[in-house]
Design a protein around this nucleic acid. Structure first.
Lengths: 176, 176
DNA sequence: CGCTCCTAACTAACTGGTTGGTTACAAAAC
DNA sequence: GTTTTGTAACCAACCAGTTAGTTAGGAGCG
């Protein structure tokens, strides 16, 4: 038997991602996470304090990874929306985790990394507008909200495709 | 003491709407619903079979009410989006209930009333396109998805306003 | 290298409170 | 007096979290 704290934490986190994404916080079962990780339940409390502590860590890691994986391209918001769409298709867990989190904890309590990335993205859009790379008929915050929201269209409608997401962002950016 | 089956069912349903909207299916507590309804827990099982049965009835009623309250105006989709937005601000429960339901039951299992209303709305949009009241650069299904999705923008972004929803639908419909 | 000792990592079993659901009984309504 | 509506107490299963005890494996030492 190999004893490795970091490895055990990793396996617990990996199992927790699946469990929480599928069942949410209230629906997740601590015993199931431990079993699927091939670890002992007590380790969860040793390493993450509580079920909620484990969820917080899971969400943080997933949000960080998603933010890093899809950097904004302010001069090509349609492409950015498409890449977000792709990311969510490949890693639907992060969207589900965020949705559970918002439903269970209200609209406040946004992960810190998300808030920080938000500021940066708004600034990038504002700059692109000044350079004339983007139209001005939406504020930077508005544009970011619209693009991000449209990129998750596929999780609200079954008929939505990547192409539709890109085309609609494109249409939003057309000059008037 | 007054005994009235329908009245008791009504009070149970009203309490269940709040409980399920706030906590979801897994997080909702049957005892709390009964207590808040001023009724006995056993009545839930007499009238709705199970916790899930109660949830299904709650969701059905809320979806029916929302569909009836906001009829589509295919020749004015921006106005339609605005009215949907208003409805969700006034009755956020239905959106939360639907969100819990989708997370817990997957993307299938859409309430029947919703599927039926969907067909009707797509047809109305197609007709408006034929009449030239709507542009043709999106399919009817696509347009409906976009409008409905944009109307819930406020629940994905804190900076979204009614005005933003209306303006973005308007921009989507501009001729190219 | 072989041995002991120590500690961090791990485990199995348990606990106390909770939960969805049931049942035996009571009383209102007709 | 019979049927419908309601109640209180109950139950077995479940669940997050704890604890007392076990073991792997490295450090120190000869």
């Amino acid at each position: 038997m190999v004893r490795d704290k970091e490895e055990t934490k990793r396996k617990l986190l990996a199992a927790a991602v699946q469990e929480f994404a599928e069942h949410g916080i209230a629906g997740a079962r601590v015993d199931r996470i431990a079993k699927n990780a091939g670890a002992n339940k007590a380790m969860i409390y040793a390493y993450f304090c509580s079920k909620e502590g484990l969820f917080d860590e899971v969400l943080k890691q997933q949000v960080d990874a998603a933010i890093e994986a899809v950097p904004i391209t302010a001069d090509d918001l349609a492409g950015y929306a498409g890449r977000l769409f792709d990311r969510y298709v490949e890693h639907p867990e992060v969207l589900r985790l965020a949705a559970w989190h918002r439903l269970e904890n209200g609209f406040d309590a946004i992960p810190e990394a998300e808030a920080k990335a938000y500021v940066h993205k708004v600034a990038a859009i504002a700059e692109a507008q000044e350079k004339g790379e983007l139209p001005q008929h939406f504020d930077p915050e508005e544009l970011l909200s619209l693009v991000v929201h449209l990129s998750i269209l596929g999780f609200s409608s079954p008929v939505a495709s990547r192409d539709l997401v890109v085309r609609s962002v494109d249409q939003l950016l057309r000059s008037r």
